[in-house]
Design a protein around this nucleic acid. Structure first.
Lengths: 145, 145
DNA sequence: CCGAATCCGGCGTGATACTG
DNA sequence: CAGTATCACGCCGGATTCGG
């Protein structure tokens, strides 16, 4: 794995080495139809517009429907319901209805849902550390054109 | 962080604790418009259909255009070109043209591009470890309906 | 308060054909 | 070999309205 001149080699090398195992595993699936690559199937679902944001919002604790709407102002009712149902279908979120009036519904992460905040966390940290470089690269690229 | 009964608590607890920092960082951005949340901006780009697959394919070494097409049979020329250019714009991939005939173009991961395979690796590993549970949860959910 | 149902515009995506 | 150009389709996602 060459080209690490801009990175802390010591920590990066270990991390890359750690990642190599996954890469090899992954490479074995590249080129196969999606149906035969369950990883791609899962990843496609994960990478929709709202799933990750919703999971990370629920990471701080169970929340009710309109509470989620308030914390994520730019999601529509429809997409919140839909994403929540998909997440429930995938076993990432559990839904509990309280027979009060007016009725309230609480959503919380399942064990599976909690487990995914770890890799999400890594991705978010990466994005947070590198978005400045990315923005700079974009403006450079656009100026060249 | 409750509800870890189905997971190895010892390792998970450490991992969750590690992730907590990122989650807090993340939570501070939830509710703000996308323009003010650079992390969401980066993540939106990442989560398109082909970016991650292309990065992981290039992780095993630099490759030429049609070589990539062969390794990813279900991508169209258009999307391969487009995704490659976006990746180049973001500084994840570098493009080198060789003035041979017929001309050949080599794509390789930059240092930034290589750094992202680490969080991607975590996500892929998670997907690989949990897709069976997810599939099972889906069929259960669908049968109930 | 927590949704379901409907309409509809835009854009991501693929198929096809053409170029240097 | 490595792209560009054009067209057409699907469906995601937002706005709105209605229901329990």
């Amino acid at each position: 794995m060459p080209g690490q001149r801009h990175l802390k080699v010591t920590t990066m090398r270990a991390a890359l080495e750690e990642a190599t195992v996954f890469v090899e595993k992954w490479s074995a699936n590249v080129g196969q139809p999606v149906g035969n690559c369950p990883v791609r199937g899962v990843l496609d679902k994960i990478s929709d517009k709202w799933s990750m944001l919703l999971v990370m919002t629920l990471a701080s604790g169970p929340k009710r429907f309109n509470q989620l709407r308030r914390e994520i102002p730019d999601i529509s009712q429809k997409m919140l319901t839909q994403t929540l149902r998909d997440l429930q279908r995938d076993g990432m979120v559990s839904r509990q209805v309280f027979d009060t009036k007016p009725p309230s519904v609480e959503y919380r992460l399942t064990a599976l849902g909690e487990s995914v905040i770890v890799p999400f966390g890594h991705l978010i940290r990466w994005a947070d550390e590198n978005f400045a470089d990315i923005d700079r690269s974009r403006t450079e690229f656009d100026q060249a054109a």
